[in-house]
């Protein structure tokens, strides 16, 4: 997935540490994402995936180490500069885990219009773009609905629309399929897949191993704020030791014929 020699990576983290309430959430972590890659960050609760998403998105700032976007350092100071802030926010979209946090407007239309409005687009263009996005996401009928009257799946789609309306080049997703029923899950995955072709980059934090192969070409396994492993979904999913270590597997408690009676850790990926 290298993109020619000179092109800087979309995101690069070098030795990033971040403390949250006195506990090290990221501990000297380094990683790199090239343009057009689809990368998954997998790890158990508290492994630092969400924090990493926030640090990459310039919503939290590393205490030591460096984060860069297309070769340019992402710091608090740089983000105060409008000539960096506005393009960065437009090009990098973030989907949060809890849609109730992300949906802070009183109607679906206003929610989707929030980003373009903040970035100072012309009002008429905003109306047109929002309408188009609502149509494309299949939520035009929810236009005037209040967020508290949306179902979980609808909330997720609106949150996604509110990010995609800016047509970002990089998408940071924090548990996009958590707490959704299987039907809605696959629908969200399908929406993301249809959006992500071309030069777009998607970084997904998840502990849902079922959808891993659909959403990523490459995975980082996180454990206690560090990278514990890296590889294609296929390699990672078969590395039972790594997955168990990272707290992503539970011992299977079913029998295999008559000879294996004791529960033992093993994976079921790719057996079908």
């Amino acid at each position: 997935m290298s993109n020619g020699a000179g092109a800087p990576p979309v995101f690069e983290a070098r030795g990033v540490s971040y403390r949250y309430r006195g506990v090290a959430a990221l501990d000297g972590l380094s990683m790199r994402v090239e343009r057009g890659e689809r990368v998954a960050l997998i790890g158990a609760n508290g492994s630092g995936k969400s924090t990493l998403i926030r640090v990459l998105a310039g919503l939290a700032f590393a205490e030591s180490g460096q984060v860069s976007f297309l070769g340019e350092a992402v710091t608090q100071e740089r983000l105060r500069d409008e000539s960096f802030f506005f393009p960065f926010r437009r090009r990098v979209g973030v989907l949060f885990q809890n849609p109730d946090v992300q949906l802070f407007n009183t109607s679906v239309f206003d929610e989707v219009a929030f980003g373009p409005l903040q970035l100072g687009w012309p009002r008429d263009e905003i109306r047109a773009v929002v309408e188009r996005t609502l149509d494309r996401m299949g939520i035009a009928h929810l236009r005037n609905r209040a967020p508290h009257r949306l179902s979980g799946g609808e909330k997720k789609r609106v949150a996604l629309a509110s990010v995609l309306v800016l047509d970002p080049e990089v998408l940071l997703l924090d548990e996009p399929t958590a707490a959704l029923d299987p039907g809605t899950q696959s629908e969200v995955v399908r929406l993301l897949a249809s959006w992500a072709n071309g030069p777009r980059t998607v970084i997904t934090a998840t502990h849902d191993l079922d959808t891993l192969e659909e959403i990523a070409d490459r995975c980082y396994v996180l454990e206690r704020g560090r990278i514990a492993g890296e590889g294609s979904p296929m390699t990672v999913l078969h590395d039972v030791g790594l997955l168990t270590e990272a707290g992503l597997l539970r011992p299977q408690h079913h029998k295999h014929g008559r000879d294996v009676a004791q529960p033992h850790p093993h994976a079921h990926w790719g057996e079908v």
Partner: peptide, 23 residues
């Protein structure tokens, strides 16, 4: 806690503290 998270989510979509509405 909600207000902190909401603030982060607003920032992620370009919010810099200025209130705006689509008239």
């Amino acid at each position: 806690q909600f207000s902190v998270e909401m603030h982060t989510a607003m920032q992620a979509r370009g919010f810099r503290g200025e209130a705006m509405v689509l008239e």
